[in-house]
Design a protein around this nucleic acid. Structure first.
Length: 610
RNA sequence: GGUCCCGUAGUUUAAUGGAUAAAACGAGCGUUUCCUAAACGCUUGAUCCCAGUUCGAUUCUGGGCGGGACUACCA
């Protein structure tokens, strides 16, 4: 709740400073209300929306709230308020209409032009608002036993993008990654490689390292399943068989040896992990993921233990007779939660407590954002709560950017059933689509092989990233491999195409000055773009406060869509007058800049031609 | 059982408590002597159900129904 109100007030704050026209209108209204209606409310309490396209006007004041506090009918207030505004602020308003409790105000064209002019001269596309914070974003967080899949991509794109957005709004960012490099899962791959590997390596087989290791993880499961089936056929129950399968026993033994520090096992473990990292790096490079700090669980899994002592001493934790340590969260509507096993080893949550502290010690963060799937909601709640109970100041700065799973039409992706959509495969498929489509259209036949390759990457990743980012993170999404990802409509390439078209115009126009004047009436299509461009900054701030890149994606699409409407109806090169031409060139220029800027926040590049 | 999330056109998504719920895909029709037709325009079609709060509810509250996640001495 606290978080929400905070986000709301932040948004209001941002809006106030970032949209001068709305602000000016609010001021004007409250001035008139105060002097002529003896109104004493806050100007921020006025509700002003963009006027719906079917009505005349630009901004709309909702009158119902005022009607109540002033004791007059909405229509009465609307009429006299409108008349007074027009009379006193001739430079601002050009007309008004009262419709069913709404006061629709028309803003002078010159006002929009003035705002647009200011914007063109501004140094930053998105001015900073409020205080700069130190923010950590943890994302990706893979296991080292298999390659990345579509779910990881959503995670990575979200994490990268929200970091970019927060940076844009004036914060200092550290991106981090936690690698889950220890535990039974990696031992499974190791055992399988020992048994079936014949000394093969990624180099000798020409396989990408993470796929190579993942292959042995699959081999393990196959072998395991076979052993279990055999044991079941000798009359054992499934459960017993699963326990008794020799390959599983060997794996468990290997984990024990690993923990004891057996040099041979450790060496194999290092080697295989290196293979995986090498594969991950290739993928990260291609999709543009980067981290300033990487934590390995093998190095951090013991960190939380001191918390256990601390918690016991302060009475936040308690010890059960068997020696295990717990925290009672029943008062907070949760359960009792184990923080230390009876054998004295730590569990997942213990590690996370330790890591949170370590990160704070190293970076002294104001906010620490964890990009993790929503199946971990409970875990993250517990983490935050425990830190709070332990009196850690940084607990309030911990945020869970919780996102829904990516599912297939058949349901959840299951690696054991081979239904995962592999990250590298899907990227490659998108490249193929980009190539096919580009060749079909044949617009860039003069491109060199390198330029083509770059274009295909740009389009493929643009489509993929936009597809995964345009949806509200907290919603789960269904990915249909059959229908695959589109290049038309509400997509990355749509926006990229719009950008390329604008750049084409600007190339033809050649050098331009950023001066323009408006004496002729502004065309609705021109105004639409001006209005929209003026909203960019507040949209980015909204995305930042909500931790939601989809806001930026929707905005960019909306802007591109609007521009395309303008493009289809009005000519830039053949404008009716020099004045119009100068204005339209500026609209093109500015739209291109903002589209590029917005897409960059999503990690998407925009081409000059396509 | 308990806790949490979700339910909007055939499908995928929008909508600080505001007006006649907005797009895209799909389907159908149309637009290129003029800046890139990966575009533009038109047609088609939706808030799971029942109450409540409100001048006003997709949005807030309660209750149903449906889907999902979590509730491990796994990580």
């Amino acid at each position: 709740m606290n978080e929400q109100t905070n986000a709301k007030s932040l948004r209001k704050f941002a809006l106030m400073h970032l949209n001068p026209i709305t602000q000016e209108v609010k001021q004007a209204i409250s001035t008139v209300l105060a002097s002529e209606f003896a109104w004493n409310g806050e100007s921020d309490s006025l509700v002003i929306n963009q006027t719906k396209p079917e009505f005349e006007g630009d901004l709309t004041l909702v009158l119902f709230g005022l009607a109540k506090s002033l004791g007059k009918s909405p229509d009465q207030i609307g009429q006299s308020l409108g008349a007074a505004l027009i009379g006193r602020f001739t430079g601002l308003f050009s007309g008004f209409q009262v419709v069913k409790g709404f006061l629709n105000l028309s803003i002078q064209d010159s006002k929009w032009a003035e705002g647009f002019n200011l914007q063109c001269k501004a140094l930053n596309t998105v001015p900073c608002v409020g205080q700069s914070e130190r923010i950590m974003v943890e994302y990706s967080s893979p296991n080292t036993n298999k390659p990345l899949h579509l779910g990881h991509l959503r995670n990575i794109f979200l994490g990268w993008s929200i970091a970019a957005i927060l940076k844009k709004t004036g914060n200092q960012l550290v991106k981090s990654c936690v690698v889950n490099d220890r535990g039974i899962h990696i031992c499974k791959s190791m055992i399988a490689w020992q048994r079936f590997g014949n000394g093969d390596t990624p180099t000798s087989t020409g396989m990408k390292g993470d796929h190579f290791v993942g292959h042995y993880y699959v081999r393990f499961n196959d072998a395991y399943k076979k052993e279990v089936d055999e044991l079941i056929s000798t009359g054992l129950t499934k459960e017993k068989a699963e326990q008794k399968a020799p390959i599983m026993k060997a794996t468990q033994q290997m984990l024990l040896d690993w923990e004891k520090g057996d040099p041979e096992i450790l060496s194999l473990w290092r080697t295989m992990n290196e293979w995986v990292y090498d594969g991950f790096d290739q993928t990260y490079n291609r999709i543009g993921a980067d981290f300033q700090k990487t934590y390995y669980e093998s190095e951090t899994y013991l960190l939380g233990k001191k918390f256990v002592e601390e918690g016991l001493a302060s009475g936040v934790f308690f010890r059960k007779p068997d020696g295990s340590v717990w925290i009672d969260l029943t008062e907070d509507g949760l359960d009792e939660k184990l923080v230390l096993r009876k054998d004295g080893t730590s569990v997942y949550i213990t590690q996370d407590l330790g890591l949170a502290q370590q990160k704070f010690d190293e970076f002294n963060y104001d906010q620490s954002i964890y990009v993790i799937a929503d199946e971990q909601n409970y875990h993250m709640k517990v983490l935050r709560l425990i830190l709070k109970k332990l009196g850690k100041s940084y607990a309030d700065g911990i945020h869970h950017l919780s996102y829904g799973m990516v599912e297939l039409p058949s349901g959840r992706m299951k690696s054991r059933e081979g239904t995962v959509v592999d990250a590298d495969d899907i990227t490659e498929e998108m490249v193929t689509v980009a190539r096919t489509k580009t060749e079909e259209l044949g617009k860039v036949k003069d491109f060199s092989a390198d330029e083509l390759k770059e274009l295909y990457e740009t389009l493929a990743l643009g489509a993929l990233k936009f597809y995964l980012l345009r949806v509200d993170p907290k919603k789960k999404m269904v990915f249909n491999p059959e229908e695959s990802i589109d290049f038309q409509g509400f997509t990355g390439p749509f926006i990229q195409y719009t950008h390329a078209r604008i750049r084409s115009i600007l190339r033809k126009v050649g050098a331009t000055s950023d001066e323009f004047s408006i004496n002729e009436p502004v065309h609705p299509k021109e105004k639409e773009i001006m209005v929209l461009l003026g909203q960019y900054a507040e949209q980015v701030h909204q995305a930042a406060s909500e931790h939601n890149p989809a806001v930026v994606a929707n905005y960019a699409y909306h802007l591109a869509k609007t521009f395309n409407g303008f493009y289809a109806e009005l000519s830039v090169m053949q404008a009716e007058s020099e004045e119009k031409k100068a204005l339209r060139v500026q609209l093109c220029n500015r739209t291109a800049i903002i589209l590029k800027d917005a897409m960059a926040l999503l990690g998407i590049r925009v081409p000059e031609r396509m």
